[in-house]
């Protein structure tokens, strides 16, 4: 048995199209030894769910520079309906402080604001991935 590196989906939902941040984060995670499934912008929620399922990912990362984070609660609900409630969802980008509680309440596992360091992102995503993998292996 070989260990599989953490497998992370980095994607964008909604309308925004800035990808400087998501490209940098993808490179960070790869350089930390993770496998990163990377998509273009404007993914529909059902498509993200299908992708998460097919790729058997450990963590789902949403990059949001405009207001796309407002769709994340819907995404988490859709993941749960598809039996993928174990996948932690993290959000990176611009999230106004007063909208954080609603995202946390919806189940967002971590929020990375502008200025979050490489170290912080890699450590937290890695930790969440290990937890998620352990949960799956205990399952089925």
């Amino acid at each position: 048995m070989t260990e599989r590196p953490p497998k992370i989906l980095v994607t964008k939902i909604g309308f925004d199209g800035h990808d400087r941040g998501s490209r940098i984060v993808a490179a960070y995670l790869r350089d930390a030894g993770m496998d990163v499934v990377y998509t273009g912008p404007w993914q529909q929620i059902p498509a993200v769910v299908k992708l998460a399922l097919e790729e058997d990912i450990d963590v789902l990362g949403i990059s949001s520079l405009a207001t796309d984070h407002l769709l994340v609660p819907k995404l988490i609900e859709a993941l749960r309906e598809a039996g993928l409630g174990h996948i932690p969802v993290v959000v990176g980008g611009i999230v106004p402080p007063e909208e954080e509680p609603a995202l946390r309440a919806a189940g967002v596992a971590a929020i990375f604001h502008p200025g979050a360091s490489r170290e912080e992102i890699v450590a937290e995503v890695g930790r969440l991935a290990r937890l998620a993998r352990a949960a799956v292996e205990g399952d089925v």
């Binding site: 590196p5 993808a26 490179a27 995670l29 790869r30 350089d31 930390a32 030894g33 993770m34 496998d35 990163v36 499934v37 990377y38 998509t39 273009g40 993914q43 529909q44 059902p46 498509a47 299908k50 992708l51 790729e55």
Partner: peptide, 17 residues
């Protein structure tokens, strides 16, 4: 690092649904 960026499926988005 042993890590990878898996970006191929982003060119197959028309089959996303």
């Amino acid at each position: 690092s042993g890590g990878a960026i898996l970006g191929d499926r982003l060119r197959m988005t028309e089959h996303a649904g």
